[in-house]
Design a protein around this nucleic acid. Sequence first.
DNA 1: CCGGTCACCTGAGTGC
DNA 2: TGCACTCAGGTGACCG
Length: 282
Amino acid sequence: MPELPEVETISRDLDELVGGSRINRVDLAHPKLLLTPLDQFQGCLTGAVINKISRLGKMVHFEFSGGRHLLVHLKMTGQFGLEAWPEENEGRLVWPQHAYLAFLLADRPRNREALIYYDIRKFGRMRLLDQPEFDQYLSSGLLGQDPFGLSPERFHTLITASRGRLKGQLLDQTLMAGLGNIYADESLFASCLHPARPASSLTPAESAELLGHIKDILSRSIAARGSTTSNYQGLKGGGSYQDQHQVYGRSGRKCPRCGQTIEKTTIAGRTTSYCRQCQRVS
DNA sequence: CCGGTCACCTGAGTGC
DNA sequence: TGCACTCAGGTGACCG
């Protein structure tokens, strides 16, 4: 579930809690989690210092000493926790349920403290890159621009360049990185734009208003520490932005703007909630 | 270049 | 109580 505000919250909490820590040991319980060979992963990170943790699109970005970069995509159910290193039984780690990776942290106030990655559905993936690989990834165009760094003019150029529907374009991470289903629906509702409208039909004024709402909604959600849904839980508990959702997860209820019943349909392959009255096609 | 569908996984919720 | 079923959202692969 984590989209931009949730990943931003997680990254900020992680940076505050474990930034500057040295990793003494790395253990893994789920090989598919890594897109980097395990021996290379352990070799590079054992003894490394976590210099900084930040957000890159929907990914958590760890910067380590030695110019290593770890990109973690939480997908639906990935989570981090700061907990005791797993118990050992006859030389084998006894992993907590859904725990798949552990970094043992050095020089912590509490002994044997670990940063643990959990993932109920095991969709999450992480990849370790060296500096040239990281630079190459940034310039590859695979990762779209961050909404907060986007000008209205640039956004208009990007969003009108393809023939897809608005909703699909907002979810395209190579165009702009960070929006998921929740904030795409919320942004389109705030802008009174129909999710199935051809993206190429937006006027510059409509693009500017949409980008403004995107930034505003993301900012307010970050301030609320994100939206708590069935799966997402931050390191310090869930956020509260779900209380401010206008259409997402509210199908069958009344539109807060006009009173019409909010509809649920599928657009660009995704569940979409919108108000037929407020969000016109043209 | 598109959209549609499925696969990846598991837990929660629903209806019988 | 249990069982079958659907749903959830992020993304990549595949097909038409």
